[in-house]
Amino acid sequence: MIKLKNITAGYNNVEVTKNINIAFEEASITTIIGKNGCGKTTLLKTAANILKAFKGEVILKDRNISSFSNKELAKKLSFLPQIRKVPNITVYNLVMHGRYPYLDFLRVPQQKDKEIVQKTIEDMALGKYINKNIYELSGGQRQKVYIAMLLAQDTDIIFLDEPTTYLDINHQLEILEIIKRLKKMGKTIVMVLHDLNNALSYSDKICLMDKGEIVIYDSPEKVFESREIDRVFKVYSSQITFEDEMPKQYLFNLK
């Protein structure tokens, strides 16, 4: 369980998030939504200990997050930044980087690390790209390789900053299905999404933010019914239900 207590954070002394209190549920998908610049990424980075808060504390397993060593923490939580480099290395080597926190002083991967990396690459259906350079892959495939690296890191908590942005619809849905599978494996997933329909249909919890504060933190259904999305984004939202097992879909129009 990971909890944020009275977190105020930002960059260069400018406060972006103010006095945030939130606890993320285990083995579930929480999605943070909100307008550009409302503090979604700042909140995510603070929770992942990438960014140090000005005030307040992040509690992981009843301990302050800063009491963990870098490597200890990297075995408990992983973070996929929104903007990443495209390194000039093979798929195998990038996924192997996920094992970095587990390597000993000589940094030589052990048999166990190699097995985990091999299995992860196969699970993600990346087998045929294993020796390809990341440069040769499409954006969607690159995203899958990065998620494979996170899986090799094998943490209980996974933070994803806009994992589907810039991807075609097929890759967007593929990534979201992978995320759903992670939840079934018992992982706690916290992500930022811009696509509200995907956010509402794939998440267990929605955290709606506005001007650096949390407006509402509840199930997608409750958040939809509260009409806070309409107020914050200045849109009119409607829900489409289907007769069979299909999840509900959401439509948004300008007010």
Binding site: K45, N70, S78, F79, R84, K85, Y100, L103, R107
Partner: peptide, 23 residues
């Protein structure tokens, strides 16, 4: 030579390197 692997991690960018546990 010993730290060359850490150099690879650092080359992934600050945020990714940090989340992998590199100071």
């Amino acid at each position: 030579l010993i730290l060359s692997y850490d150099m690879n991690i650092l080359a992934l960018g600050d945020e990714t390197a940090k989340s992998l546990g590199l100071n």
